[in-house]
């Protein structure tokens, strides 16, 4: 389904989603990030990319698995599986959209993750095509995506200036569009042409090249023991920015948090974790298979461009460029791949 939505009717469409949680980018604290849109509030879709990725909607930074307490001496566990109301996210950039099926893969695999899927099943992603790159670190096209990729999205909107071209991609997306059908106009040929032109222009901006994507796994395999890694990680500070902001990084930790030390009541909690933290792989004995920053940088890059490719035949990177832009010390995954590929 393809429709046209004038800028001023965006609000009308959003208002039809009053039984959903609606999220959209908002500029606050000098940064774009997703925020809950209260009923009747306007949506500003002039954003660059958000600082946080949409993974937070399905994989929140903190998820309580269950509560535990003792009843007559026997542990009593109460599952806290979420049962959210439908959630619609506006303004999802296509790179983030492409991250979602990759996360789906991870949380599916041999074991289905009920917490992820409880949220995922209720989530509708409305993408917004990029008319131009937001930063010199965008490289979606270099990893097989595009500024108007539909992968992972339920709806793709394209900003035509005074109006949006809106395309329903999945049944879920079409349903959301149906609800606001009164706000939409039919698509004319010129609308189609305009959208096509914008897509074409957006693809024409130069992006940082990764060379032959297919050759990267081999290069990574060959360079597993290379001293390059230590060298490239020389200035790494081992923080969690690159992975926490990444739309596809999904590593987590599970801990018991005791809320009442006397009764032993508490919660088992999943929190984001990060392959760049020193204790991530440290055994109880103190032995650490990835004890230095070089091996941890290698793990991050290999996970995305080697292991994920080996297991799932695609990169676990969508070229959003957050890890490059936000790295405090200039570690640049594109430059890393370039050096390894040389």
């Amino acid at each position: 389904m393809e429709k046209i939505l004038s800028q001023e009717k965006l609000r009308e469409w959003v208002d039809t989603l009053d039984d959903c949680e609606v999220h959209a980018p908002a500029f606050a604290d000098s940064v774009w990030n997703y925020a809950r849109i209260e009923a009747g509030a306007d949506i500003d879709l002039s954003h660059t990319n958000t600082i946080g990725s949409i993974k937070t909607f399905v994989f929140p930074q903190r998820e309580v698995f269950f509560r535990f307490e003792k009843k007559d001496g026997v542990p009593l566990l109460t599952s806290t599986l979420p049962d959210p109301i439908p959630t619609v996210v506006f303004g999802v950039r296509p790179c983030d959209g492409r991250g979602m099926p990759r996360n789906d893969t991870v949380f599916n695999k041999e074991f289905e993750d009920p917490y992820y899927w409880a949220r995922r099943d209720k989530l509708t992603l409305i993408g917004l095509a990029c008319n131009q790159p937001h930063s010199p670190n965008c490289f979606c096209q270099s990893v097989g995506g595009s500024p108007h990729s539909e992968e992972g999205l339920d709806i793709l909107m394209t900003d035509l200036g005074d109006r949006f071209h809106v395309k329903g991609i999945t049944a879920k997306g079409v349903e959301i569009m149906e609800r606001g059908r009164d706000a939409f106009d039919a698509v004319s040929d010129s609308d189609q042409a305009d959208a096509g032109k914008i897509h074409e222009t957006s693809r024409s901006y130069p992006q940082r090249p990764l060379g032959d994507l297919d050759a990267i796994p081999e290069a990574l395999r060959e360079n597993f023991d290379s001293p390059l890694w230590a060298d490239m990680a020389q200035h790494c500070i081992g923080c969690g920015i690159c992975t926490f902001l990444c739309p596809t990084c999904h590593c987590f930790d599970i801990n018991d948090e005791v809320t009442s030390p006397t009764s032993g009541e508490g919660e088992r909690v999943r929190t984001w974790d990060n392959c760049q933290f020193p204790d991530f792989t440290m055994h109880t004995s103190g032995h650490n298979p990835r004890g230095d920053l070089g091996s941890r940088l290698r793990q991050r890059v290999n996970h995305k461009f080697l292991y994920f490719v080996e297991n799932h035949n695609t990169q676990q990177c969508t070229g959003c460029g957050r890890c490059i832009t936000e790295c405090p010390v200039g570690i640049d995954i594109v430059a890393v791949l370039e050096r390894v590929s040389q």
């Binding site: 041999e110 074991f111 993750d113 930790d253 392959c275 792989t281 298979p289 996970h303």
Partner: peptide, 12 residues
């Protein structure tokens, strides 16, 4: 190895 989830998701 250090494990948290046991089901191939937590990544370590």
């Amino acid at each position: 190895n250090k494990m948290k989830c046991g089901i191939g998701k937590c990544g370590r």
